[in-house]
Structure formats: structure tokens, C-alpha cells
């Protein structure tokens, strides 16, 4: 925590901003990348969104208040950027966001940056059937193993609401997989 406070101070100081930002990127790039990638699916899109996320962080770091944790503030920016991105893509293709995500999940097998097996494609398709919030909660809980309190800070939702979302998400995914595999 002390380290984070020092880093924030350095980030908000013009003299040390760039050096400190390099430290920030190296600490968070992978975590934020995977968080974004699970939302947008394609690597190229994830790369664009990650760059935009860090640019937004760089420009707004002076406005960051210590009343929330730095990582949850950054996760929130990354989440918003990724969702805005897929909404934009869906609009460009004249489809709604659910349809766009279904298409995205189906085309994952053709992605050179996908090394999974058929069951992983099924999982991606199952996740794409969920409402946006359930998708986010499932990915953050199941794959990233974040605590409910952390997810609550990032998504600004109550812990109770998150537990319910996760429960629904797991049940729907289980059913989807069973309907294909069994």
C-alpha cells in the first residue's frame, strides 16, 4: 500500500511521471491485457484497447484520488474502454452487442492467437450467451480469482449482487456445456 502511495505521488509529479509510468505499465500490463482480452477476444483489438487504456490512465492520473485503490481504478478504465470498444464494433457491423459477441466467440478458432481446444471454444461461446455483467463477474472470479470485494470496487456493484451474478453465470455455463458435451 505504501508502495502504491509513493508510485501515485511520482505519477502525479511532472518530473517523475514518465519514469513512474513505465513502472506502472510493467506492473499492470499483463493483468489489464488479460482482463481486456477476455472481453474483446481478439488479440489485435485487445492491444488497441490496452494502449487506449494506458493513454487514458496517463492523461487522468492527476485526477486520481486515493479514496479508491489504483488497481481498481485502472481496471475500471480498462473495463469501460473494452465495453465501449465492442459496442462500437457491434454498431459498425449493424448488429446488437450479444450477436456481435456470439460471432466473435465462434470465429475464435480462426484466430492465430488462440491455442485452445474445442472445449475452450465451447466455453467462449457459453460465456458469450451471458449478459455483460455476468460475463465480467465470471471472468474475474473464475479465471482471475479476484475477491468479491475487489470486483465490487472495480464494477461499483454490491458484493451481494456480484454473488448472485456469478451464481447465475456458473449455472448457465454448466448447462451450456452439458448441452453440447453430454
Amino acid at each position: 500500500m505504501t508502495e502504491e502511495i509513493t508510485l501515485v505521488k511520482e505519477l502525479q509529479n511532472t518530473q517523475s511521471k514518465e519514469r513512474a509510468f513505465r513502472v506502472l505499465i510493467s506492473q499492470y500490463k499483463e493483468r489489464l491485457y488479460w482482463h481486456i482480452r477476455k472481453i474483446v477476444i481478439s488479440h489485435d483489438d485487445a492491444d488497441d484497447v490496452l494502449q487506449n487504456t494506458f493513454i487514458k490512465i496517463f492523461r487522468n492520473i492527476d485526477k486520481f484520488k486515493a479514496d479508491s485503490k489504483l488497481y481498481s481504478w485502472m481496471y475500471r478504465i480498462a473495463t469501460n474502454e473494452a465495453i465501449t470498444f465492442i459496442n462500437k464494433r457491434a454498431k459498425e457491423n449493424n448488429v446488437d452487442i450479444e450477436e456481435w459477441q456470439q460471432e466473435n466467440a465462434s470465429s475464435i478458432v480462426n484466430d492465430t492467437n488462440f491455442s485452445g481446444e474445442e472445449i475452450q471454444v465451447i466455453l467462449q461461446k457459453a460465456i458469450a450467451t451471458l449478459p455483460q455483467k455476468q460475463q465480467l463477474v465470471f471472468n474475474m472470479k473464475y479465471f482471475d480469482d479476484l475477491k468479491y470485494t475487489e470486483i465490487s470496487e472495480i464494477l461499483e456493484t454490491s458484493v451481494g449482487g456480484l454473488k448472485a451474478s456469478y451464481h447465475h453465470a456458473v449455472k448457465k455455463i454448466e448447462e451450456y456445456i452439458k448441452s453440447i458435451v453430454d
Binding site: 513505465r22 505499465i25 510493467s26 500490463k29 499483463e30 491485457y33 488479460w34 482480452r37 477476455k38 477476444i41 488479440h43 492491444d47 490496452l50 494502449q51 494506458f54 493513454i55 475464435i108 492467437n113 488462440f114 491455442s115 485452445g116 481446444e117 472445449i119 475452450q120 471454444v121 465451447i122 466455453l123 467462449q124 473464475y142 479465471f143 456458473v170 449455472k171 455455463i173 454448466e174 456445456i177 452439458k178 458435451v181
Partner: peptide
């Protein structure tokens, strides 16, 4: 239910990145 998913899929989602993608990220940023 979680156990069922884990047994079928594991904890990997199959997504990968190009080689050395993260290494040059700061400079490209």
C-alpha cells in the same frame, strides 16, 4: 457446478499472445 466446469475446461481459456508481445509494450506505448 464450478467443479464440473473446471473438470471439463480447466482454468485455461485457450487465448494466447504473439511471442514477446509484453516485452516491447512500454516502448510501443
Amino acid at each position: 457446478s464450478e467443479e464440473f466446469i473446471r473438470s471439463k475446461v480447466g482454468l485455461k481459456n485457450g487465448l494466447s499472445t504473439p511471442e514477446n508481445y509484453f516485452e516491447g509494450f512500454e516502448d510501443s506505448f
